[in-house]
Design a binder for these strands. Structure first.
Lengths: 269, 269
DNA sequence: AAGTGGTCTAGACCACGAT
DNA sequence: TCGTGGTCTAGACCACTTT
């Protein structure tokens, strides 16, 4: 044994957070006080910084040693917090370079949210045609999904997505009006790149997670015309609710996918 | 600084694996020698033990300290290997009790592979009716998916899954004949519990991962009759390939889901 | 050469579960 | 009380990238 045991300096969950610890509330006597380890509290602090925009998508966050000094914990504890954020696809580690805030401007992130893949593997150029973009009062169903009050302002966007000139997806997208003030059909149309990239760059709203419900439904007359198919053709209906930091819902979307040459891919782990 | 640096005892990736290291080939001068850290090699060794059945589903594996001694590495290294296996849902940690091999006899695992959920949240009793179970020579498409030679023996199972007496799913399941020797319609019918539970208990084949391709298709006449619906009704078609340890494909399955009262749920992370 | 993340170790202590 | 996994720390060294 090369060492003798060291003096008990700042023994984590008992001393550290309560005395010399970081800006973290250990809630000692709280009733439903769910115990959470230090690294998870650090994770929460990093998430707060991301949420308030201290580090923007694509940028590097401070090094592990810097963060350790800032939060007054060891590098290992910061590392474990970042490990989880990287596993959540919120941060991205690059050895030798630093740790970066994930962004929808990378294909890696984009394909996590675009699950439609060509049967033959040949990815064709995609193009959006925007049918409308208007403000209205939230219908009850939308208000509930977005956790708004019934009647709050929402933005409705409708578009047709084509792959290689073949119309394949109809999307109906509902967004909280308060977060997307200047959003217009023109800005959507002139923007190059994925829609979530625009949301993140222009409106500071980053989607980090989504839940989907999928069904098979028959095409109605309007959908059939938009997709250039016969009414009644089976379509994949994908209802999505997207969340930003803190599990706050910020998008409700209903997609209709034509799956004759494309399929929705999924992995069960 | 309370300490002075200690003497360099067994400095990991240079000394340890090469000299006193475990039964692991570091392949020093190999041409395409992809470097892999110690903990990942340990992960591989644990996976091998699982694959050869040294520890069975539901059982506990040895403690971290035991494994550390066995592989001649530190507890921390074993821990990191187990961390990854737990993240892969292959192992399951229970504080104070030990680390266990995941099993399809738990709901937690079962619902990872059964994505169909009732719209109203009321899970009804499910029941399988087996239409057939027979052996035949693998069609080209099946052979390719299961990485068999065309003409190898395969087992074909067809069944209807009902939720609360309402027929909802038609499954067509292809399995390698060599792995499922005694599989018959009777054994399937008399078995209580999920099918993957039977596969794992009776045939030693554990599914740990699956890829799915999803489409909307119209019901044909035979399917319509089985599901008690009209021909042409849109159905969700789910093509699945399941893998066991080492990414070996061991099942090809085509499901047709009636999604009028159920939906396929998915999370995008 | 300096800075970053990545690996490995060793040890102390905590939380949980069974005895 | 003991054994298990869980947390935290400290330090050495490796691998990668940039200066």
């Amino acid at each position: 044994m090369p060492f003798k045991p060291h003096p008990p300096c700042l023994s984590a969950s008992t001393d550290a957070p309560a005395t010399a610890g970081p800006a973290v509330a250990p809630e000692p006597g709280a009733p439903g006080a769910a115990f959470s380890p230090l690294y998870r509290q650090i994770k929460g602090l990093i998430l707060q910084s991301l949420d308030r925009g201290e580090w923007k998508p694509g940028e590097a966050i401070p090094s592990e040693l810097d963060l350790a000094a800032r939060f007054k914990v060891s590098q290992g504890t910061v590392r474990k917090a970042i490990d989880e954020l990287a596993a959540d696809n919120i941060l991205l580690r690059r050895q030798g370079k630093g740790t970066f805030v994930a962004t929808h401007h990378e294909d890696r992130v984009r394909f996590r949210f675009l699950r439609l893949a060509p049967d033959d593997g040949q990815h064709a150029r995609s193009r959006s045609r925007f049918l409308e973009c208007r403000r209205l009062r939230a219908p009850a169903e939308v208000a509930k999904a977005l956790e708004l009050r019934a009647g709050d302002s929402v933005v409705l966007v409708r578009r047709v997505l084509s792959f290689g000139e073949i119309p394949t997806v109809i999307d109906e997208i509902w967004l909280p009006g308060s977060l997307f003030r200047g959003l217009t059909a023109e800005r959507l149309a002139e923007y190059k790149g994925p829609m979530y990239g625009l949301f993140e760059s222009e409106f500071g709203v980053r989607m980090i997670r989504a839940d989907e419900k999928i069904r098979a439904v028959p095409a109605g007359a309007p959908e059939a015309e938009l997709l250039d198919i016969e009414a009644g053709t089976p379509l994949l209906q994908v209802e999505r609710i997207s969340f930003t930091y803190g599990d706050r819902p910020v998008e409700m979307r209903r997609g209709l996918y034509l799956t004759s040459r494309y399929h929705y891919r999924n992995s069960l782990n």
